[in-house]
Nucleic acid binder design. Structure first.
Lengths: 219, 219
DNA sequence: TAATGTGAAAACCTTCACAGCT
DNA sequence: AGCTGTGAAGGTTTTCACATTA
């Protein structure tokens, strides 16, 4: 008990969780632009989502608005960040320091959002000991130890497809509960481990379906 | 007419389209590993999806299986690739050749899947004329002309967040119907334009919710 | 026997519509 | 007057379960 906030103790749909970061992003933008209050209608327009959906989504976590007025932007950002666990920093480790892994280590978008890359690993002994960003590459055989030492919360997998499932298995054995996977595979993990896949090719491949099915209203 | 294949003329849910590329990926792996026939149960296990869902999904497009036996892997891969429009090559243009844009141009995962980067654009005159991979950077003001000349099917947006919506507006004006967006924004486009967002931070931010809500069964 | 393809049932998610608060 | 919060309605997606076929 004491875990869930506000509304009721209804189980919260995963789709709702997936939308919250989007809300946070747009709200943050509004706040930084000086907007103090926003209605679900206004927010919905900016997100391409219905106002009712926004109100329903927020209602899972509490009553953040004022009737007749709308939502205080700063307040709502804060509440949603708290709900998502974004009111603290999270430590990540990048596994695989090839082209992609190095790009991830140097990606400037994580740090400002509270995600720090504090460790890097590679199976190739030639890479071990090198420095990228401000992390030193360690051997994959150190995974277990390092994950505890560095208090890693999230693993970022950037190894070739052929090795990815093995790496993910090791991570799971080490007790990792969250994995951001860049390898183009469908990872197998136990239920209690969360995986998000970053895979531009999948995005392209769904769009071609729609491109193909187009212009068919032209004779 | 003659567009929709197989089963019936039921409108096909977008979630189904989104799953197809995953099926293609796992099936391709199986095929390359020498598997000739696969059942929906086997496939489901590898994808973390129920067998019924796979059968229902496939039934939107045709009857690809054999009762009592399963699906011929090579045949099914071919059919699904055809359904998704992956039986041809698609031309893409990368907009923005900063760190991220250059990484995308050099990403080796697109070409083997039939996606070619045939043009690159940047607003910065210092970048115009430079070469990355085997494309020459052009001025963003040439977008319109170049999209027609190079027969660009898909735009890949890799500009800073602040410029992304403007770039997307230009692309839409040029008639682009598919955009792969790497900028951390919620893009606004007309219904007929498809957008897929690649945003690792959103993935991380949904996982922290689950991490936070964990270990609560340990009193 | 084994596994597909599919109507029907169940689960899930979104939208409606309005009471209630500011 | 305006907009939230929310039960109930409506719509969509998933799962079930079985007739059917190899």
């Amino acid at each position: 008990m004491s875990t869930a906030a506000g509304g009721g103790s209804v189980p919260i749909p995963e789709v709702v969780i997936v939308r919250l970061p989007l809300y946070v992003r747009v709200l943050t933008q509004l706040r930084d632009g000086g907007t103090e209050v926003v209605s679900s209608r206004e927010l919905g327009t900016r997100l391409g989502v219905t106002p009712a959906q926004i109100r329903k989504d927020l209602s899972y976590f509490g009553r953040f608005g004022k009737q007749g007025r709308g939502y205080n932007v700063s307040f709502l950002v804060g509440e949603l960040r708290r709900v998502l666990g974004l009111d603290r920093e999270w430590n990540t480790a990048v596994i695989g320091v090839g082209r992609l892994g190095r790009a991830i280590i140097n990606y400037p978008g994580f740090e400002p959002e509270g995600f720090r890359v504090v460790a890097a690993f590679d199976a190739d002994p030639d890479q071990v000991g090198r420095h990228f960003g401000n992390v030193r590459v360690r051997s994959t055989s150190d995974l277990d130890r390092a994950i505890v030492d560095e208090a890693i919360d999230i693993a970022i997998v950037a190894v070739p497809a052929a090795e990815a499932q093995d790496v993910i298995d090791s991570l799971v054995k080490c007790g990792i509960k969250a994995i951001l996977n860049y390898a183009p595979i469908a990872p197998q993990v136990p239920d209690e481990v969360k995986v998000r896949n970053i895979d531009p090719v999948l995005g392209l491949q769904t769009m071609t379906y729609h491109l193909k099915t187009m212009g068919s209203d032209r004779t």
